[in-house]
């Protein structure tokens, strides 16, 4: 594996996503339900998907372009869902705290 700037950034992304995965699962025990709990299960699922998707980053150079395009589009799609869930969660928290 060639250690260029793309590989280093990719490995950094994988590392950070693994930290995210650990944290999102660790916090689950403190969030058993409620407004946050409902969104949290979806967020765990998305982080798992991201972590799995990011694992292919070190192998980008060896992949066919068509496969690569599909994977990137999937990551973008689930990224958009993640942002949507996060925004709705923050909105829900603000609404509850201001009620």
């Amino acid at each position: 594996m060639q250690l260029d700037i793309i590989t280093i950034v990719g490995l950094g992304a994988v590392l950070i996503m693994l930290i995210n995965l650990f944290q999102v699962i660790s916090l689950k025990s403190q969030i058993s339900g409620g407004v946050v709990g409902k969104s949290w299960n979806i967020m765990i699922l998305l982080v798992v998907l991201f972590a799995a998707g990011y694992m292919i980053l070190p192998f980008l150079a060896t992949m066919p372009v068509e496969t690569l395009r599909i994977i990137v589009s999937m990551i973008l799609f689930f990224g958009a869902i993640y942002v949507l869930v996060t925004i709705r969660l923050i909105y829900g928290i603000i609404r509850e705290l201001s009620a």
């Binding site: 969030i31 407004v35 946050v36």
Partner: peptide, 13 residues
């Protein structure tokens, strides 16, 4: 109750 509504159960809160 707000904490419970956010992190435990809305109805029980």
């Amino acid at each position: 109750a707000k904490l419970a509504k956010l992190t435990i159960d809305e109805v029980k809160a």
